[in-house]
Design a protein around this nucleic acid. Structure first.
Lengths: 214, 214
DNA sequence: ACTGCAAATTGACCAAAGTCAAGGGTGGCT
DNA sequence: AGCCACCCTTGACTTTGGTCAATTTGCAGT
């Protein structure tokens, strides 16, 4: 369930996190997606890039045997949709209510020049994910995940986790029960505090960083 | 220990796997690296891209606690070096004797246009790695690794594994002993055959694919 | 062919995480 | 307010894979 917002009526939003880098690329329309609604489905025809204005999007994939995995979470300013051929190899869904612009790169000469830095940023996200996934122990992965989320949320100690535990598990390659258990262990050790299920306050940066050892 | 080869003396090698896509980018020099020699080190100043002409390169990283992990293997035609900021966050080493061209993207207008497709290919490699790492069980990861290697080697059933078991382990996030054990299990089940330590013949594609379930 | 070293295999044991299952909280809907 | 559905937490048991250690294999150099 999505509805269109007329871009012209909104004017050029300089404050928008992605506005600058996307300016002049092409037809940019903002859609607002409700929680758990689909941006695109695995197998659908592709062609656009998407940039998150607000909210959170999970990009993932179903394996042939029905398991699901999440390759990334995108927050305000993040671009997704590269991970696609002629058809989408992945799906993208809003985690919470989210605003997303669809971008169709034009044939203009300078399009590649504008796309390159965006792509580099996406590449960095992939790298980060690799680092997270590579941690042998799950507590390392979760620690790295929390650190990176905090980093992407301006280094705040109070980290928002809009996604359910199952998403985190599917992102880290871990069962959702284990996510819950590790969080408990962190709490017991005084490393974090969980004011509510969807936010984590980092109390002891030092020990959390040590756990990552990336 | 590396030595320079004069590019002009070699002429334009149309048959070179990367020649076409790199033509006109900039100063391209071919260096030949002996097995286990360093292309660049973690922490060194960066600035170039590299393209493999022949051989195999591992790109990796040391964690602060001394463990090593491998983020990718590059074969003929693959580009690496994106994974770097002003200094290299990663190291790159030749696995076996390898020919590598260093490329300094110029300021030319069309440089981004040439780089974009190369980068997209690198992005795909990252995706593939993510898929491999995501497999919960190790036999899935190894199966996926073998399938992807075969794919990158023209779909041959006889797959070359120039890298040692420790590299494979560090790539899959698994101990080298486990790599060895899983290979044995595959052999016992008649899925593969290992004519020698550095090559694997895939005997039963069907069951190997089923194991990946990517 | 012989020696010596590095890489690979294999085994025994142990710790970590998955699975299955039961219970508890929370927010949305009527 | 009350009900229901979904998500999260926690526990018991089982499987998987890591670690340490002992061989074995394969290869380079003489």
């Amino acid at each position: 369930m999505t509805f269109q917002v007329d871009t012209h009526r909104m004017g050029v939003n300089i404050a928008s996190p992605a506005g600058a880098s996307l300016a002049g690329l092409t037809h940019v329309a903002l859609s607002v997606y409700q929680a758990n609604s689909e941006v695109y489905g695995q197998g659908e025809p592709a062609g656009s890039l998407y940039i998150v204005e607000f909210g959170c999007v999970r990009v993932g994939r179903f394996t042939s045997d029905g398991r699901r995995y999440v390759v990334g979470f995108c927050f305000a300013g993040d671009v997704f949709g590269w991970e696609s051929d002629v058809v989408h190899d992945f799906f993208a869904e809003a985690v919470e209510i989210s605003g997303i612009r669809a971008v169709r790169p034009g044939r203009a000469n300078d399009a590649p020049a504008k796309l390159l830095p965006l792509m580099l940023k996406s590449l960095r996200r992939f790298e980060q994910h690799l680092i997270v996934l590579r941690g042998t122990r799950v507590d390392e992965r979760l620690a790295a995940f929390l650190c990176q989320l905090s980093e992407r949320q301006d280094g705040e100690s109070l980290v928002q986790l809009p996604m359910p535990r199952s998403d985190i598990g599917d992102y880290l390659g871990v069962s959702l029960e284990t996510v819950s258990r590790i969080l408990r262990r962190f709490k017991d050790r005084g490393i974090i505090r969980t004011p509510d299920t969807h936010s984590v306050e980092i109390l002891d940066w030092q020990r959390l960083q040590n756990l990552c050892s990336a």
